[in-house]
Design a protein around this nucleic acid. Sequence first.
DNA 1: CAATTTATGAAACGATTGTTCTGTAAATAA
DNA 2: TTATTTACAGAACAATCGTTTCATAAATTG
Lengths: 210, 210
Amino acid sequence: MNQPDTNTAPLPRPRGRPRGFEPQQALDAAVRVFWSEGYDGAAISRLSRDMGMPKASLYQEFGDKEGLFLAAIGRYVETRLSTVAQALGPSGTLKADLDRFFEAVVTLATSDPATPGCLISCVLADAAGSNARLRKELDARFAALESRLRSRIEVGRMEIAGAESPAVTAILLASVARGLMLRARAGTDGGTLQEVGRAAVNLVVRSGKD
Amino acid sequence: MNQPDTNTAPLPRPRGRPRGFEPQQALDAAVRVFWSEGYDGAAISRLSRDMGMPKASLYQEFGDKEGLFLAAIGRYVETRLSTVAQALGPSGTLKADLDRFFEAVVTLATSDPATPGCLISCVLADAAGSNARLRKELDARFAALESRLRSRIEVGRMEIAGAESPAVTAILLASVARGLMLRARAGTDGGTLQEVGRAAVNLVVRSGKD
DNA sequence: CAATTTATGAAACGATTGTTCTGTAAATAA
DNA sequence: TTATTTACAGAACAATCGTTTCATAAATTG
């Protein structure tokens, strides 16, 4: 019955020469390079250098540039977009949670001047223009955020203004969030964008005088 | 007093060999290539071929790839975004004009499956990540649309719901429009996006029961 | 006609692209 | 130790990149 600590036990060293890079740190570096340079603009040499990972290991691990890009997007969703999704709670009123959501969106898009905007909305969206696989990926990532928003809105359905369905309201709020990410790509300061986010929430959530 | 028709007179042929391409058609072709392939993804050879313009003439005319891209953006604004701006009127109620605005936005972003989304919001936005000149261009193009929206909103100021300023409301509506363009890049059909546009208008414009 | 001017088409440029190969280093297994 | 396995660093690859050059074509001017 007493199961040995299969998960926490230090794994026995694998067979050959140990890798000289940290897989997660390497992916984080790839995220930053793609985020600022774009998909076509990010050269493998630059990625290899910034990731601290030799090209051979890079191709061994990810297959090709597209595979590396998709892995970087996955890492970005886990480490960056997760904070945005978590902000939605539910942990308060719909208004409070949506305010936190837009605050997280703007922070993500403006906190590092070297990587303005959003890896998905600015970089993947561009690459999706002529690459069917990446277009599918874009659609799936977009749908995931909208689904998350719709769930939260359905929980607080009675708090929303107007007669729109939760599904449409979710796409609308997701569109505002993406528009703010785009605006951040142009260098707009976070304060202005926060104000716009609050305005969106005020219009969507039922106000006192209704 | 009777001014000769300086504008309509057939211009005397210029000195040397006549050019073998139509400048406007050539730029239209460049718009399409950048729109689908992205800035880095659009190869000069491909641009030269599709524009029907030899590389030498291309460099003579635009200086370099960045100059050609900026010219293509100007052409795109004149020939495509102008219909979006014109839809704003004023030619009816604020609600009617905003509905026409979003209808034009969605049509622009979905009418040709080879060029989904928006050249500015999807392509220029990506390129703006690591190029200061293009980031400035993106900011200027974004600001121009917001200014146009703000003017229209100020004219119909009494028709808007909520307490937000015309400036903030303009950025909010511009953000929704750009979010819809992004969604179109992923292949979403126009009908869904039209619905979201109408929802945005319904929330921003004062409704009967207020 | 010859002289001049501009544009064309294609070759050529060096640099960089994404990707693969090669010899060696560093670990474990027998 | 020897054999085996994996990862390393960097050379090497053909292809393509953005850009320039150049001889020639096609027009006007004198």
